[in-house]
Design a protein around this nucleic acid. Sequence first.
DNA 1: TAGATTGTTAATCGATTAACAATC
DNA 2: TAGATTGTTAATCGATTAACAATC
Lengths: 205, 205
Amino acid sequence: MNADRIPDIIIGRLPIYLRALLHMSEKGIQTTSSQELGERVGISAAQIRKDISQFGEFGKQGTGYNISFLVDKLRSILKVDRIWDVALVGAGDMGHALARYQGFTNRGFRIVMIFDNDPAKIGRKAGEFTVEDSAGMTERIRAAGVEVAMITVPAAAAQGVADQLVKAGVKALLNYSPISLSVPPDVKVQHIDPAIHLQRMTYYL
Amino acid sequence: MNADRIPDIIIGRLPIYLRALLHMSEKGIQTTSSQELGERVGISAAQIRKDISQFGEFGKQGTGYNISFLVDKLRSILKVDRIWDVALVGAGDMGHALARYQGFTNRGFRIVMIFDNDPAKIGRKAGEFTVEDSAGMTERIRAAGVEVAMITVPAAAAQGVADQLVKAGVKALLNYSPISLSVPPDVKVQHIDPAIHLQRMTYYL
DNA sequence: TAGATTGTTAATCGATTAACAATC
DNA sequence: TAGATTGTTAATCGATTAACAATC
């Protein structure tokens, strides 16, 4: 156990471990080792043991880790042992795809509202939701106490939307717009940009 | 200039620099400094200078970097000074969103074929493409010489699809399925999983 | 017990930062 | 010229790996 601040890079690996462990759990596997988990996720066994040991002694010498126990621990550490309400801004193709995405279930998230500023989209359905006018976004989000949001608006609008979301109290932003957002230090941002991910690979081709 | 192998972590930052530089370029800015670029992307000036200097002396003391010159250099380094044909596997919501995504243009990529194994989807349109039967996928991809692919199939099917793509000669895989893929060492994989990205932030909430 | 595997330490490796001479 | 900013070196900082005692 370690009371110091845990490095970002370790926190970033925990969701990968969690996903793999849930996958094993669904297949009925009850126990795993750092070795086996490492092979599945492409990370060394030593690193996995070291990462996990930052938070406690969750394994047993000789037998490894009990999967459902470790899943519970990781969920608790990552604070996904609850359901976070998520606001989605941008009801374009990507927004619609996310609105209908099944992958949030059981992983700690649920979209609860969708906004757009296009009159042609407001009032229409996106997944099971009705697209709301982004004019009322700040108040809606603040009133609902939503702290997590996803942005799927065009690049030119993204920073403005981010500013509004921050003002509304959002502390975690998943940005699908192809632009670097600037936010206060207490707000976390993650970027998803398929072109960036592809460009990281073409260097090696 | 450095003839050694460039670390992955540096290659991973270059697309971020490139995107920011293109953005500045579109706004008519002609010159920038490591300081200014660093503020835009949230990376220290020293690191940006060090990263860029791995590939040559692209700046000028006193004035900084010429943006269009640096854009050209980065495009060439990342091999996106050409257009890569991309195959898309999975014509669900995410596949459709990617098929219609405008963000690949001018960034080195163009989707050229879309596959699915669902008879209800085969023959239908996705963006400007007609969904093809994934039964003929390996041959189609090999014949077309496609080296880059995106996977948007359900988790249970993803590893099988990846295996087929590898067999077809694909060397760069962008995986939207919520599962860790295992591929030979000469094949690059990048993962996009919104739940993973969100879980990286909830720890801090 | 014998074998397996953890948690942890120390060693190694790699990345970032600070500082500054060079120079535009 | 004076001011600004690069490219690079050395120092610092942090992350990964190897190894192994502890122990299930």
